[in-house]
Design a protein around this nucleic acid. Structure first.
Lengths: 337, 337
DNA sequence: ATGAAAGCGCTAACAA
DNA sequence: TTGTTAGCGCTTTCAT
């Protein structure tokens, strides 16, 4: 039961040269059916598997890509991206690539990348969500191909897979209006300006379409963390008139909002409806479960790898934006009609 | 700016042999300070990095380990393990190993493993949670080292890192008793018999210690999925007398329980307190946030890699059980005293 | 249609 | 203390 058969062993056993074996393994032309069968028989019997390490050396490639998380982002905020990872993995397997799990950090202006990236021991990188400029330029000097999945920036020189968040926001707010809501609040943050702009524009478009005004007393776009969330929600709840529904830029904001409303004795959706964008794992697990616009993380992952493979193989390729109007109706929105 | 410097280039530039360069790179003895400095200068100037691919071939190792998820387990149930992954990654980097993200599936008796495992393109594997017997024997015939993190089985021949769930359960229930609870329900499942046994024993021990009886009308250990959860909780709520607190085997059961109780208008913790084991990410995000016994996923990950490295390097090693009595007090338990 | 031989970038036994 | 040399297991060019 020796397990370390090499191509030489197979060649010997089949009475051919290793070139022949190699040709057969790689499906090349110019081998007679007879020898092909003979060799394949030996391979079958011995259960021989060529090792990748020789190929890696010969081709100067590692046949791995890394998905690189931002270490400074709390794991909770990354929930959305864990779903993407499964799509990445699936697509990598399709290309016979391995997917390595990795992370970078940027504290102050101190950028840290793992050794396997610095040593160029990966053929390409996938980032999730916008990445800082210093990282982009570092990657350019390293000359390593990368794709940003769920990018929100407006860089046109990068390879990205984006979701259409304007459409997603429009879809969410339009749904609220359909359900009879006329007083619709907004909760968001401006951490990612381009993202904010898209979402706000979708929100605004839906309001305008139905001749609804934008009421600033229910409009909070400077949420930073849990504390500011509480402060702003507190402010909103102290108004004489409350919105009947609140649109949140991201599920995780909505989850915090719901948590806070419940804490204050406000019932969701009886008193206030809540809707958001993303459809992260836990949105279906909280009470009330969250009505939201799903972002197709399967597509996000699949296209990212496709583009990255094109880059690795020096093929022509291009960025993609996926449509995002798939509303997932759950319990957090009440119908007023 | 040619990027593909090899050890030969460095040797040439420093006027030494590549052996010398190799020795210096690997910190071997027997090189004069003078040449060492000379070579290191060249390396510094050129920013030369040896590529791993040659080493991989020479050492017949890939310098990667894979963390292998069970594909059939819903992502939500894996939330606990995503936290472990960060510890795995950190420890892998410490050993200069890459961590590849991977999965297996077992449908019926059809076991599927990814090619990079079958081709032995990883040096070792980490599994999270108990794995099926067919997989264990497959791994043995493949002759690939593996460690099971958070195993609950009683196999003594495997390398595992376990948490002390008996202690965790005892800690949780003891805490409830300390808070004045005398009527404590139990919700769990028997999917993993050994796990169940441990947890039940901890629950029982805490009750017995305070001379509290085990009331079977509040005892449900056959939870399967959401539907059975609802059924059983329904049964429990229809009793004339209710427990003041419920202990759940896992956070995710507790989260479902809370969701269901709220749906029925039962307030947590005013009407019923809830406590569990795990401390998954979302337990702090729901309302009320969940009081639970944390399992130290940092240790779980770190020790798993340590053991795996010992196995890979053919060093003597042994399984570990980590202590687990760290209670995280949040909002879901009410004090009765 | 098949084989001989060189080489990918390292490590390490052996020689000097 | 340093250099020469032979691999590690593949792919591929060039002969035959």
């Amino acid at each position: 039961m020796k397990n370390n058969l090499t191509i030489n062993d197979i060649a010997e056993m089949a009475n051919v040269s290793k070139t022949t074996v190699s040709f057969i393994l790689n499906g090349k032309e110019g081998i007679s059916e007879k020898t092909r069968k003979k060799v394949l028989d030996v391979i079958e019997q011995t259960n021989y598997k060529p090792t990748l390490n020789s190929k890696r050396l010969y081709f100067q490639k590692s046949f791995t890509v890394a998905v690189v998380f931002d270490k400074s982002v709390p794991v909770f905020d990354n929930l959305f991206y864990f779903a993407v990872m499964n799509a990445l993995l699936k697509r990598c397997m399709h290309y016979n690539y391995s997917l390595i799990y990795s992370e970078f950090s940027l504290v102050g202006d101190e950028l840290t990348l793992p050794d396997n990236i610095l040593d160029k021991d990966v053929d390409g990188l996938i980032f999730l969500k916008d990445i800082p400029l210093v990282l982009i330029s570092k990657l350019h000097t390293l000359n390593i191909p990368f794709v940003i999945a769920d990018d929100h920036s407006e860089h046109t020189s990068l390879y990205t897979v984006k979701a259409d968040y304007q459409l997603a926001a429009y879809t969410a707010v339009h749904y609220l209006i359909q359900q009879g809501h006329r007083h619709i609040g907004f909760i968001g943050n401006m951490n990612l300006p381009a993202f904010y702009t898209q979402v706000f524009s979708g929100y605004q478009k839906a309001l305008k379409e139905s001749d609804l005004p934008l009421d600033l007393s229910w409009f909070f776009d400077k949420i930073q963390d849990r504390d500011t969330t509480e402060t702003y929600i507190g402010q909103m709840l102290s108004q004489k008139e409350l919105p009947t529904a609140i649109f949140c830029m991201e599920d995780f904001l909505a989850i915090e909002l719901i948590r806070y409303l419940q804490k204050q004795g406000v019932r969701v959706p009886q008193d206030i409806s809540v809707i958001a964008i993303d459809d992260i794992i836990i949105s279906s697990q909280i009470y009330p479960s969250l009505t939201t616009v799903a972002i197709n993380n399967e597509e996000l992952g699949t296209y990212s790898i496709d583009i990255l493979m094109d880059l690795i193989n020096k093929k022509e390729t291009h960025s993609i934006t996926i449509s995002s109007n798939n509303i997932v109706v759950r319990e957090s929105v009440r119908s007023l009609i």
